[in-house]
């Protein structure tokens, strides 16, 4: 197995339509190295998939890029801002949806929307307009007055997505956004993501559903904190001469 060659470090990080750049990023928790010297770029409008088993370092990477976690070493920029110094500015440019679909269960659908819009400083009028706009594809207003806890998982997932993109972030971080969701809801969800990306939103997504790799423009396979493969799905399939990303993944990881 060959290590992918790291991106050219001489590239100017803020230009060239790059939404995310990461160089030699690491994070240690005591003795444990959760993320071990990773480097990659994500282009504007790209769907960049992070594949890996639980504990491979996917969530830790996302947390460092969203300003939730301080890296132990390495550099990175998100939306042109430095992840060490300007994480407050980064927060205005990103949307984040976590694997738990973190919503308030006792709040109604609209209340969740207004709350998350509110903490991004959007006016109620602005939120109302955005919600109406998003409703065209997300179909949430039909259940606007239902409490979130009573919704099926597929709905919660769409609501969480809506909350994450109310403020029109140019970069969207999705941490296992389809966990536990059935295939039909997953297809619907990915259709939304592909449309967002097609309209210019950069999507950084982690998943352990290998069939979802097909939706990504580029994949990076993580194992024990390292990126062990990174390329487009078709190039990876060609390289390992297999039609199944899952088989390739198992081959790379289970040794």
């Amino acid at each position: 197995m060959t290590r992918p060659s790291p991106p050219d470090p001489s590239v100017d990080l803020t230009k060239n339509g790059l939404a995310v750049t990461v160089r030699n990023l690491s994070r240690r928790f005591g003795e444990f190295v959760a993320v071990d010297d990773i480097s990659f770029d994500v282009k504007k409008g790209e769907i960049f998939g992070f594949l890996g088993a639980n504990g491979a370092g996917k969530t830790t990477t996302i947390r460092m890029l969203t300003g939730l976690l301080e890296p132990s070493s390495g550099e990175g920029q998100v939306g042109g801002f430095d992840i060490h110094k300007d994480y407050e500015k980064i927060k205005t440019r990103i949307g984040y949806m976590s694997q738990k679909f973190s919503l308030y269960d006792d709040l109604k659908v609209v209340e969740n929307l207004y709350f998350f819009g509110g903490i991004y400083g959007l006016s109620r009028e602005h939120i109302r307009m955005r919600v109406a706009e998003l409703d065209q594809s997300l179909n949430l207003l039909a259940v606007a007055d239902r409490k979130t806890m009573s919704l099926p998982l597929g709905f919660k997932q769409r609501l969480a997505l809506a909350c994450a993109i109310l403020h029109k972030p140019p970069i969207l971080f999705l941490d296992e956004p389809t966990g536990g969701v059935d295939p039909i809801a997953r297809r619907y969800f990915w259709d939304l993501i592909s449309t967002l990306a097609g309209d210019g939103t950069t999507v950084f997504v982690t998943t352990h559903y290998m069939d979802e790799a097909e939706y990504c423009h580029r994949l990076s396979i993580m194992y024990k904190g390292k990126i062990i493969e990174m390329d487009s799905p078709s190039a990876i399939k060609k390289k390992y001469n297999s039609v199944s990303i899952e088989d390739i993944f198992i081959k790379l990881v289970d040794r």
Binding site: R187, D191, S194, G198, D199, Y215, P233
Partner: peptide
């Protein structure tokens, strides 16, 4: 332009008959 293509096909077919993949 995959997004443009998918939008065109969605107008001709049902939207759940069309899906955009990475390539």
């Amino acid at each position: 332009d995959l997004l443009g293509l998918s939008r065109w096909f969605k107008r001709q077919l049902r939207s759940d008959q069309v899906r955009i993949l990475g390539d």
